[in-house]
Amino acid sequence: MQKLTNKEEEIMHILWKLEKAFVKDVLLEVSDVKPHYNTISTIIRNLEEKGYVDHVAYGNTHQYYPTVSKEDYRKNFMSNAIQNYFNNSYKSMVSFFAKEEKISAEELREILKMIEKKK
């Protein structure tokens, strides 16, 4: 799975939300400064080349849809982040969030309960 740029990720989130969309539909969902129609079209075609998106043609227009699920992308993204930034250690990742005060002791206890239930 190729790495996506921030803009490509933004477009993928829109496509995951909409499930199927024409370029004009995606353009309406872009949150910040609205890029030109052709810019969105180019990003979507790049996503198609990378294998994240496919389309159905209706004459000269295309309706695009994701071919990679959000869940699959998230798993790949997290695996890469843990490998590249935490030496493939989930413990290091969790301790990082604890040190940064991004996760509370109560949340950690909830996670431990979830792990115990799985056993």
Rank of each mutant, 00 (worst) to 15 (best):
Q2L: 11
Q2R: 15
K3P: 05
E8H: 04
E9A: 05
E9F: 05
I11G: 00
L15K: 00
L15P: 00
K17D: 14
F22E: 04
V23N: 01
V23M: 01
V23R: 00
D25Q: 03
V26Q: 02
L27Q: 04
L28R: 12
L28W: 12
D32G: 15
V33N: 15
K34M: 05
K34N: 06
Y37A: 04
N38C: 11
T39W: 04
T39C: 08
I40C: 00
I44E: 00
R45Y: 10
R45G: 05
N46D: 14
E49I: 12
K50G: 02
V53K: 01
V53Y: 02
D54H: 12
D54T: 09
H55K: 05
H55R: 05
V56I: 11
A57M: 07
N60C: 08
N60E: 10
N60G: 08
Q63T: 07
T67W: 03
V68D: 03
K70V: 06
E71Y: 09
D72L: 10
Y73E: 03
N76Y: 06
N76V: 07
F77V: 08
F77Q: 07
M78I: 12
S79G: 13
Q83T: 12
N84M: 14
N84T: 12
Y90E: 13
Y90L: 14
S92Q: 13
S95G: 13
K99M: 09
E100S: 09
I103L: 04
S104K: 11
L108D: 07
L108G: 05
R109W: 10
R109A: 10
M114P: 14
I115H: 09
K117W: 08
K118Q: 12
